[in-house]
Amino acid sequence: MMNCEQTNSFLEDYLDGYLDEAQRQELEAHLAACQECQTDLDNRNAVLKGLRALPVPRPSPGFEERVLSNARQGNRKHVGFSAGFGSAVAAGLMVWFVVGFWHPSDRPEHNALSVIVMQVEQPREVSLAFNVPHAIRDVTFRIELPEGIEIEGYPEQRELVWMDQLPKGRNVMNLNLVARQGVNGELLARIQHGDKEQVFHVPVRASMNGVGITPSFEQNTISI
C-alpha cells in the first residue's frame, strides 16, 4: 500500500484522471485508511471545483455574429458602430430593396412592405438588403431614425452618414436597433450618388409590451 508521501505525490494525477487503474486502486486503498490524506484530497478537490465554477459574464448581445461579420470586413474596432451590424443572415428582420438608375428629378421614394415591430429596450437586428444591377462607386449612405430609436452603441444619434461602394449584386446592411420609448415612425435609408438620390422608407413600431412582434424573418422586394 502507498504511504502518505507517495499518496501525496499522486493526488493531483488522481484528481485529473491521469492515473492508471492499478495506481488508482492503490491510492484509494490508502485514502480509505488515512483521514489526513483524504482531507488533503477533499481540500484540493474543493479548490478545483471552485475554479471551475468561477463565473464568466455573458458576452454582449450579438457578439458572435458581430465578431464574424467584422472579421470578414477586416474590422478590429470594438462594438461602437460595428455593434449595430451583425452577420448578414443572422438578423431578425430582412427587408430587400432593389437599387436602380434614376434621374435627379424623379427622386424615387419607396415604402417597404415590412414593418419593424419592436419592444422598448429590447434590441432587434434588422437587415436592409440592397440589390444593385451595376456597381456604383462613391455612394453616400444616410440612415435616419425616428425619435426614440437608436442604433446600439450610438446613443441619441438620429442620423448616420458614411461613404461606401455598392458592388453589383446583393449587399446587406445590418442594424442593431433599440427602442427607448414607444415609437410609431419610419426609418429612412437614403442612398445618394452624385446629384441622384433614392430613399427607402421602413415603418417602425415600438411598444412597451412588444405585442404583435413580427415573425423572425421577412422578405420583401421592391422594384423600381
Binding site: 472579421a71 474596432k77 458602430f81 452577420s87 440592397f130 448616420l160 461613404m163 446587406v172
Partner: peptide, 17 residues
C-alpha cells in the same frame, strides 16, 4: 463613417464561420 460597410450577400466567409 468608418467601421461600417456593406456586406456582399454571397459571403465568402461561410467556410470561416
Amino acid at each position: 463613417m468608418s467601421g461600417f460597410k456593406l456586406i456582399p450577400f454571397k459571403s465568402r466567409g461561410a467556410g470561416f464561420e
